[in-house]
Design a protein around this nucleic acid. Structure first.
Lengths: 120, 120
DNA sequence: AAACTGACGTTCAATTAATGAACGGTTGAT
DNA sequence: ATCAACCGTTCATTAATTGAACGTCAGTTT
């Protein structure tokens, strides 16, 4: 599956470093090689990325992945959308944490009360 | 899979409302019926929950799920652990959002600069 | 009383998502 | 020529989840 998270992260990494290998990309993203391969293909498929054969200074061969004009354009859209989602997530987390704090305090207070009762 | 998230949520909901059906629980948690069934069995398996046959005021039959003493005890541990994880998640999200903001601003600034250049 | 309705928990075949070992190809060193 | 080190690609396998289908029970309707 190709989510905005990986759209954003992959485009960002490749813009800064187009000659990274799929394995290193997988390591950096914390996902499997197969999944990286799948995501790259998908990004190429929709025209955000282009792969060109390339052999660099040392024992590396393989592709260089660079953003197409459409990719550059779309990246800002994706980034903004991803940020928006993260801000929402942040707000949700805030209320969720408040709720959790209440739960913890409530339990604590019960325990404390039980302790008081047990005092001689 | 039974994660802390559902351990916490299920124990919380059932403590407040032990006679909820698996379907309603699924709806409330936003997961499937099969998964709720799986989670409940797992919680019963480890002794945090107990199911007793029960028929209530109207056309409902089925189980009443209530927390065992161990379940009550463990719930506070799980809640605290879950809160801690959420706080970490919150902190991570904060830096992630900062990073995203930078990216957005950077792109904006490039676009703005391009606009200026294009001015006659 | 027999048939129907609706809600219950249980099951499991099917779907979806993700993994990583294995493969063939290419490069540069031994 | 052989070897070792990477490369991208593939795909059988595992993991996780879904929800339609099933049998059961209690109340309602025919």
């Amino acid at each position: 599956m190709l989510t905005d998270e990986y759209r954003y992260k992959i485009l960002k990494i490749l813009e800064a470093n187009p000659e990274i290998s799929q394995r290193d990309l997988a390591r950096e993203l914390g996902i499997s090689l197969g999944r990286v391969n799948f995501c790259l293909k998908a990004l190429i498929e929709v025209g955000l990325l282009k792969a060109t054969n390339f052999r660099n200074n040392q024992n590396k061969l393989g592709y260089m992945y660079f953003l197409t004009p459409k990719g550059l354009e779309e990246k800002s859209v994706i980034t903004a959308r991803f940020l928006k989602a993260k801000l929402q997530e942040y707000a949700n987390l805030q209320t969720e944490i408040e709720e959790l704090r209440k739960d913890v305090n409530q339990t604590m207070s019960i325990k404390y009360h039980q302790m008081e009762i047990k005092q001689p």
